[in-house]
Design a protein around this nucleic acid. Structure first.
Lengths: 223, 223, 223, 223
DNA sequence: AATGAATGAGTATTCATTCAT
DNA sequence: GATGAATGAATACTCATTCAT
């Protein structure tokens, strides 16, 4: 609703004139943000349904009920609005993957990881269109988009790799090539998310999270 | 099988005539296949470098040194040549993934799986362009291509899932959701292949194969 | 109907606003129709000069001084603009051929028919390009166009055939195969129109109309 | 069968060599003409079915079962083979329209004209494809083709016009603008032929010929 | 003569983006 | 801000014709 960093600016000023101007611009700014969000939502739906290349600007503006030029008032290009959507979903994924609390009174490690996985899977279930953007549409689109995705995965990988290394240092985990195994795990998770996306309803989030955990924690050989 | 330029030196009986005709048409057929393969090779390189959408037919024919019409003599469309390349790489991957031999005198299971992984990874190392086609370019291109890829992964998954189920039945493997875990493993392998593709030289094939095996066989928890 | 540049000088109540909007959209609609008509006119000239197949979209847009895309803003395709022109000319011909008034105080039959012929011939003289479209260019172009032409001629034929049958019933005309003779007459008229088109200036409209009338009314044998 | 002007060349010569060569070349010439005719027949069928522009050289050579290059051995171009076919049909029409015999012991004028019309209509019935070429496909194709058609019609017109003038001079026909009326009659006939072509079976040749004759000879007014 | 692989000029149509109103 | 008419670069595909074998 309120624009971050703008909240304080609506405080009463001494002159009516300024107050009016400010409140007017604040209001218009608000309207602008709302329209922007509406466009983002519409574009998301269209991109998810038709794919990036099959989507025409016309599809978006028709669905949004705005004029052609209006679109370019809010986004520099087709590429830009896709980038904005991608940033959005990548941000949400980032938020789902918070650090593991290794303090004494923290939840058991397994439960924490389980939570992360459930959050990720729920994100896919609740925002399938957005997820599809990151998991399918964005791949191989563009050097710029590719770089963005690569950076994101690198970031995830760094976080996971360091977590695993920590676990190894603390003796929680066995000795293995942490960076390499991190990529494997990321791959598993990515495929699991895609699974939920493509075969909606065929799998339970809990079941997937457990399968991911068990496979990677204890493997498939009998103990 | 007549030697080029030697036909006139033999008696011109009807048999010879037919033979000549056959050899001539066989030769032209051979040339045709060569031309086709050359076009495929060139297109592969261009697709891998620029991506499907950034690739124009002009790029391919210029690189191949043939005329515009010649391209369409061998492939119905840009889409068709991409499909042919994809079929090619999917076929190669299929060949790399042969059945596991569970007879008494067979190699140990681990060694067999290790072999499969090494074959897959080698394929990526040796044919990075072709691999990139399957792992990046083909994703989200087209409903038809998508269906082809989906079918391929479904096939891989079926094979893996049944293999795991077999292992469980024989007591080699612990109890787990075989279909789900199969997807996880496929995800790991896919990411590992992509890793080799993107960070060429940063990883050793053997190391990756081992990491994949260990993670999934015994997990990352200490035993 | 607001005067351009005057809008701001009137009170900005909602009624005015709507009126302004309406006049603005009406004006733009008018401009659009004008642009469309201009394109039709230019295309007509080019089609008449070069023929359908020899005419490229470039010819039309260059002559019209608009951009490529603009053309497609007004017409779906080359075929579509030709169809629109054909509809235009067929409509005009239809208008030229009004029903014959057989009431007691009507003009004599001969004079009425003479009038129809003169109108048709004048149409050709005044809009030779348009006429050429219907009489030459449209023939054998396309199944769709063919169907349109056939339907038009069938309509003309039905009208003429019924008129003749009426005349026979009323005793004005002798006994003959009305449908067949109608086709003959249509053929004569068509050729006469083509004559005027191709040998512009060599014949007088009145002379042609008289010749057509006399030939079909009383024949070429002496009475 | 035999090539006009070539029959005498197969007479016995003194030397075997020459005889062989000549007979061989005569035979090959014969074969050549046969192949040419076959191509013409096939092209005719295809042109009639699909129309000139929709017909591809591929359609013709596939239907004829010859190679691409072979076509160009017999005809310079697509345009040329169409021209040859058009010449053929125009020639046949010319043959159908022979001079009217005005000698004392000749058949009555009406019967003679009736014969001409029946010949023309029969030509259309027996060679609808060929007729369609002249009556539909050839129109507006090309300046060259147009000129050929125009010249043909002019020729027909000249013949008819002079015949009518003769009749007038001899008192058989009333006074009218012979050239103009000739065009009207040509138009009627043309349309009648087209009628037979398009509504095959709906009309009898005799009926059409009679309708044409009656309309133009005595008109549609009661006598 | 016959073949058919190769050629390459030719063109309708699309669609992201701009900009005058 | 909003509009939507105008823009024009971009491009896959066709097909008549040639020519080496």
């Amino acid at each position: 609703m309120a624009i971050p960093g703008m909240e304080g600016m609506t405080a009463m000023d001494s002159t009516q004139k300024i107050e009016n101007d400010e409140s007017r611009s604040a209001r218009s700014e608000k309207l602008k943000q709302e329209r922007r969000k509406e466009l983002l939502g519409v574009a998301l739906a269209v991109f998810a349904e038709r794919g990036y290349h099959q989507t025409r600007i016309s599809d978006i503006i028709e669905a949004a009920g705005v004029a052609r030029g209006t679109f370019y008032l809010y986004f520099e290009s087709k590429h830009a609005i896709f980038g904005a959507l991608l940033d959005d979903v990548l941000g949400r994924i980032r938020e789902s993957v918070v650090g593991v609390d290794s303090s004494a009174d923290a939840a058991p490690l397994r439960a924490q990881i389980h939570g992360i996985l459930v959050r990720l899977l729920s994100l896919v279930r609740e925002s399938p269109a957005l997820s599809q953007l990151a998991l399918r549409e964005a791949i191989g689109l563009d050097t710029e988009i590719d770089a963005k995705l690569d950076a994101f995965y690198a970031e995830l990988h760094r976080w996971l790799s360091e977590s695993l290394s920590n676990g190894q240092r603390l003796g929680f985990l066995s000795a293995f090539d942490a960076p390499l195994v991190s990529w494997c795990i990321l791959g598993s998770v990515e495929r699991a998310l895609r699974l939920l996306l493509e075969r909606e309803g065929a799998f339970q989030i809990e079941a997937i999270a457990d399968a991911l955990l068990d496979t990677h924690l204890t493997g498939i050989l009998p103990r």
